[in-house]
Amino acid sequence: MSVLIFVENWDGKFKKLSFELVSYGAKLAEMYATEAIALTIGNVESSELVRLGKYGAGRIIQAVNPGITSFDSQNFTSVIAGFALQENAGVVVLSNNNTGKAIAPRLSVKLKAGLGAGVSKLPATISPFVIYKKVFSGNAYANFIIKTDIKVLTLAQNSFELIENDRNAVISQVQVDWNSAGVKTKVNEVQKQDGKILLTDADVVISGGRGMKSPDNWGPILEFAELLGAATACSRPVSDEGWRPHEEHTGQTGKIIAPNLYFAIGISGATQHLAGVSSSKYIVAINTDKDAPIFSAAQYGIIGDASKVLPKLVEAVREIKGK
């Protein structure tokens, strides 16, 4: 058997989450004393493919077909299922991002393989196969047994560290069947946000809430984010009011993120907000109300008015960074 890792590429490029996935899959393969195989679909330069090998993949498969011009969940599922059977995969690992969420459930039915969605660590044991995941939006956790021979897992983003382990992976390019006529979802247009750090990819996130009082007060947040190379986010009332775009809303019904460092500025920390950010490694809160629930989720806090504290923080970072 083997562990098959589906690694998405973005216009032929990989990113940190790709290497997290390969690191995870390689560790899982070690538990089975078997090989980790990384699979990507579409054209990727070999210099980029080689990068997957640095995180423990024994083999790298690039599935190509001139017909593959955009994502289609049915066809991607067929290609991945085909390799899972051909490589006798015991586990198929995908990211819990938008693409993984689109494919993994279909794959689970196609392979009749139990699905562990949004896992954040390796299984406690592989026989029985026990996974650990967040439930009730982070208000609890649960262990589940996956009972089928083949398992499908999706890994929560930024939950597993990169582990370098160069195995001189063998790279192969494989022509696959692609049912162009069976593509029932046609991408008419792609709108990209260029140049911005993606909220779900960011190591540091600066987030503002209603305590910022007005959309005109966002300047220091943007400046602070720029200095730290951070992405910006906001709470639900802020996006509902239209102070910030809805893509920035983090929380239960918005984006669920797990950066290394999350700044909650003028955010009280309702259960629904914490559900979206509680997996952050460190939370820093700035709030005027010392009893705000955000302080029980935070490791560091400042009780004070964001409009007074933030400029001083910006100044302190400038000083330290020598800017």
Partner: peptide, 13 residues
């Protein structure tokens, strides 16, 4: 459809 860093406009059968 929301994708990493953008949106796709998709027509579907």
């Amino acid at each position: 459809r929301e994708i990493d860093g953008g949106k796709e406009i998709i027509s579907a059968e």
